[in-house]
Write a protein that binds this DNA or RNA. Structure first.
Lengths: 121, 121
DNA sequence: AGCGGTTGCTTGGTAGACTTAGCGAAGTCA
DNA sequence: TGACTTCGCTAAGTCTACCAAGCAACCGCT
């Protein structure tokens, strides 16, 4: 009987996942804490679903447990599932925006042209 | 001159990136705020590098700007340097070629314009 | 001159992410 | 039986991510 907070359900799944991975790696909370430079009480709270860790904490946990950061984020629901599939979001626009060889104005006009083409069909 | 905090360098890069993407999409802070359900003052602070946004905020921003969450996280340094290929092949051209909404001629002229822009710099 | 709308920003406050210090149970070795 | 260690956890505090309210400057309008 103590002043405990309800583990908010959906996040305890992530906690369970982390705990099982930690135990699979045969690490104690304090050992994982040292590897991740996250305090061990906080790790305990994360595993019990009391708090939702930041992405940086998730990343360092993933590294310590030899998991990919993506796996971690996916488990945490921070990644859209299956972003990569074809054409759902305008890939051309995205590629233009991220192109380091174009100025901002060039990007804008290219996108305008592209949209014009789409409309013209 | 006001009591401003130093933008901690590395994070202002992410802010600049977000701001440029927002402006490319021709969105005001308030419009982006509505799309992301993140308050507009906070978006302003993020763009100026005053705070490091959580992964969930980053994710909703990415969605609103039609960027993949991975791109966002990578820009924020939250992802292990995913080699992400693409350095070799021009992503823009590839995206244009694969776009099902464009005719062959449209694709050709778009690519021509794109190459012209690259040369013009 | 005013107005109504939009822009980005500052201020003040709240909540929760995260820390340090320390507790009780269980094991080990003398 | 100690004394010592290691386990996970609690308690209490600090810091900062994030929000609501509001301000100053700018834009057409009339």
């Amino acid at each position: 009987m103590s002043t405990m907070v309800a583990p908010s359900e959906s996040w305890s799944a992530l906690g369970d996942f982390i705990r099982s991975q930690r135990q699979l790696a045969r690490l104690s909370l304090r050992q994982l804490a040292e590897l991740t430079s996250v305090s061990n009480p906080y790790l305990s709270q994360i595993e019990r679903g009391l708090y939702r860790p930041s992405a940086q904490v998730l990343k360092s946990i993933a590294e310590a447990l030899h998991l990919s950061a993506e796996t971690m984020y996916a488990e945490a629901g921070l990644l859209d599932q299956r972003v990569d599939d074809a054409g759902a979001t305008p890939r051309v626009e995205q590629a233009i925006r991220l192109d380091p060889g174009l100025s901002t104005e060039q990007k804008e006009t290219l996108i305008q042209v592209y949209r014009g083409f789409l409309r013209a069909r």
